[in-house]
């Protein structure tokens, strides 16, 4: 089995997929670092000070002003009210929620990358794992060896899991290393609050507690890895079902993007919460942001994702084992 996995990793590496992914991460992280830097500068200019307390107070005033506007959807108002409560809590407890530093950048990067960017990178590897062998015809040479079909597919899936781990590692290391050049490398011990539970319009702060930022980042990385594995598994399934890598990419991209759009408009369509693509923002539960549909929790979302992933894996193996290869 390890020889088969070695074969699959060799092919992924020699196709230079992982280098492309590393390059994409590096370029985008540099871009975001610069954007973040400009935003901090802008804020500093506007407020005339870099004191975060003033900044936070300013943000709270901003929020309060926006809440007074009458032409606002009920949903948005609810969200802003929750944010307001959260920020007031930070101020009262003397905690800087966005203390600059590479770890903070890394944290926000993961939070923003979890539902689209990281899954996209995983797709770059997963989309052509099987479909490229089918379209190039090399699948025939693979399947006429004295190895059972399920072992061949399993070796590919293990190679995918290894690649996902590598991608997560690259995202973490590159975002830390590159943003640190600008923001400095300190800030792992910064205490952060978690445990906010949005309940309707209220923010339940009963379970709020403090954890150091490094722990927070580890939790988020774990959640991001979970999301990436599920999206990778579904992509893998389509890669088995379809010969065209472009079609696999197209379907998965459409699903991911529709998820991002749906999250903003499905609050009254309750059964939409069983779609995998509206459940991708797992880090929001840690942050305490309102879920797209009332009643969704971290456990619920992870269960939905796990079911989708398992179903995808079953379909992939079932089809691959029985299919006639032309």
């Amino acid at each position: 089995m390890s020889k088969l996995v070695y074969n699959e990793m060799l092919k992924i590496v020699r196709k230079k997929r992982l280098w492309v992914i590393a390059a994409i991460i590096a370029v985008l992280v540099a871009l975001f670092t610069y954007a973040q830097y400009r935003e901090t500068e802008e804020l500093r200019k506007r407020l005339g000070t870099t004191d975060w307390r003033t900044q936070l107070q300013q943000q709270i005033v901003d929020l309060q002003n926006r809440l007074q506007s009458p032409s606002m959807s009920e949903e948005w108002r609810k969200y802003l009210q929750i944010r307001l409560k959260q920020q007031q809590y930070y101020l009262e407890h003397n905690i800087n929620p966005s203390a600059p530093g590479a770890p903070t950048f890394m944290r926000t990067f993961i939070e923003n990358a979890i539902d689209l960017f990281l899954p996209l990178l995983v797709m770059v590897v997963a989309a052509d794992l099987v479909s490229s062998e089918a379209s190039a015809g090399t699948i025939k040479l693979l399947l006429v060896r004295p190895v059972k079909r399920w072992k061949i597919l399993l070796s590919k899936y293990i190679a995918l899991l290894l690649s996902v781990s590598l991608i997560m590692l690259m995202a973490a290391v590159l975002s830390y290393a590159i943003s640190g050049l600008v923001f400095g490398y300190g800030g792992f011990r910064l205490p952060l609050l978690t445990g906010f539970v949005p309940q309707g319009e209220d923010l339940n702060t009963a379970n709020v507690h403090m954890i150091p930022q490094w722990k927070y980042i580890l939790i988020e990385l774990g959640l991001a890895a979970f999301v990436s594995v599920v999206v990778g598994t579904l992509t893998f399934m389509f890669s088995v079902l379809l010969r065209s890598t472009a079609a696999v990419m197209g379907i998965m991209l459409a699903a991911l993007i529709s998820g991002a759009i749906l999250s903003n408009m499905v609050s009254s369509w309750h059964s939409a919460k069983y779609l995998f693509m509206v459940n991708l923002r797992l880090t929001d539960y840690i942050k305490g942001a309102a879920p797209p549909i009332e009643g969704m929790t971290l456990g619920f979302s992870m269960a939905v994702l796990a079911v989708w992933g398992l179903a995808g894996l079953l379909v992939a193996f079932f089809v691959f084992m029985r299919r006639d290869v032309y």
């Binding site: 070695y6 040479l141 693979l142």
Partner: peptide, 23 residues
């Protein structure tokens, strides 16, 4: 079967090695 499709991004030796690992 039909054309002998190999992995074009690997060398001839690596292609053979790849299949040898499966036997």
């Amino acid at each position: 079967v039909e054309n002998p499709e190999m992995y074009p991004y690997l060398t001839g030796w690596e292609n053979l090695e790849h299949f040898a690992r499966m036997m």
